[in-house]
Structure formats: C-alpha cells, structure tokens
C-alpha cells in the first residue's frame, strides 16, 4: 500500500464554547437579519415623518420618558446576567449559570413589566394613524423577540437547575447570551426613536 500523508485531528476538543463555534456565527447572522429589519423600519419611520406636517398627528399623546428610561437601564443591566451565565457556561460552573440566568430573567422581566405599563398608557393604537402603526410595529416586533428569548432563557434555566449541563446546553447558554446582547443593543435606537422621536423630530403642540 502506498504511504499517504495524514493530518491527525483526534487530539482536538470535541466542542467549543466561543466565537469559534459555528453556532455562534449562525446566531450572529440571524442578528444581522433582525438588525437590518429594524434599521429599515427606522428609516421608514423617518421617511413617513418627513411627509407629515404634524408629528405625531393631532390627538396622539407624546410619550413619557421616565418609565421607559428606567426600563432601558434595567434591560442594559440584565445583559450582565447573560454575560455572567455565559462565562460560567464556559467553565461548566452550574451555579454560575443558574445565578446569571436568574439575574437576567428577573431584570428583563421587570423591564418588560415597565414597558407594558407605559404601552398601556398610549391613547392611540396601530389603527389610529401612521404614527401609531410605527410605534406599535417597533414595540410589537421587539417585544416578540424579547419574550421569545425570555422563554428560551427560562428553558435553559430549568435545564441548568434540574437537567444535564452538558456541552450542548452550555453552548446554548453562550449563544443565548449573544441573542440577548443583540436584543438589548437594538433596543437602544428603538428606545430613542419611540420615546424621544416625537420630542426630537416632532412638532410641539
């Protein structure tokens, strides 16, 4: 038999929890998609604004800043929990994962409640006018992502508490943190558009 050159890879680790993992990249691209979607929505918002004389249309209340800002701070802080959990996942530290995810869930949950309270105070909805449509689209889409990821985080937490915390689950925790950073990051421009937008580019009544 002819001698054949080989490259032995049996010594390489059988999994990886970092930006070298394909899953991490896949998740990154999903965030590109969502990021583009929100960017287009923001562009459409300003496009529509430019074509209106009065913004928000007469009758629509101006947003409050207070509650949403508290909520924003909580959301940003909740990313600390994600970070904590994902670092712990890399070390296979079960307690760290549990506490990190818990912190993430509590803060994010609180922020969500504040967001919903503020949302309830609107005196317009998506049917009222274009302004209403945009605000509801921003909030609706982002909250959809937000809740989806909270559910996913909750499942991870349950697994971490009662199940196996094997490599696959730990990669899951890590990837979940990437998703969460995105959800937090993209919220910042949306927050500005939704709650500051009318004050910055609107017409004062």
């Amino acid at each position: 038999m002819r001698e054949v050159k080989t490259l032995d890879v049996s010594h390489l680790p059988p999994y990886e929890i970092s930006s070298q993992a394909p899953l991490w990249w896949g998740q990154l691209f999903i965030t590109f998609i969502e990021g583009t979607m929100f960017s287009i929505l923001i562009a459409a918002y300003f496009y529509t604004r430019l074509r209106m004389d009065v913004w928000p249309p007469p009758g629509d209340q101006f947003p409050h800043i207070g509650l949403p800002t508290v909520s924003l701070v909580l959301i940003i802080l909740s990313a600390v929990g994600s970070y904590w959990a994902s670092e712990a996942a890399k070390r296979a530290d079960r307690m760290g994962v549990i506490w990190g995810l818990l912190l993430n869930l509590v803060l994010a949950g609180a922020a969500l409640i504040l967001r919903i309270i503020e949302w309830h105070s609107f005196n317009f909805n998506w049917k009222t006018d274009g302004y209403g449509s945009y605000i509801w689209a921003f909030l609706g889409l982002h909250t959809f992502d937000y809740i989806s990821d909270l559910v996913f985080t909750l499942v991870l937490l349950v697994i971490a508490m009662f199940g196996r915390l094997g490599p696959r689950q730990r990669v899951g925790v890590h990837v979940d943190s990437v998703v969460w950073y995105f959800i937090v990051l993209i919220w910042i421009p949306i927050y500005i558009v939704v709650y500051w937008g009318p004050w910055l580019v609107g017409t004062q009544q």
């Binding site: 050159k5 080989t6 490259l7 032995d8 049996s10 010594h11 390489l12």
Partner: peptide, 11 residues
C-alpha cells in the same frame, strides 16, 4: 495524488 493529505482522527 501522492501529494494529497487526508484528515484522520475524526470519530
């Protein structure tokens, strides 16, 4: 062909 290399050691 004699210059090619192959990966071994994947499970």
């Amino acid at each position: 062909p004699e210059d090619r290399t192959f990966v071994t050691g994947l499970r």
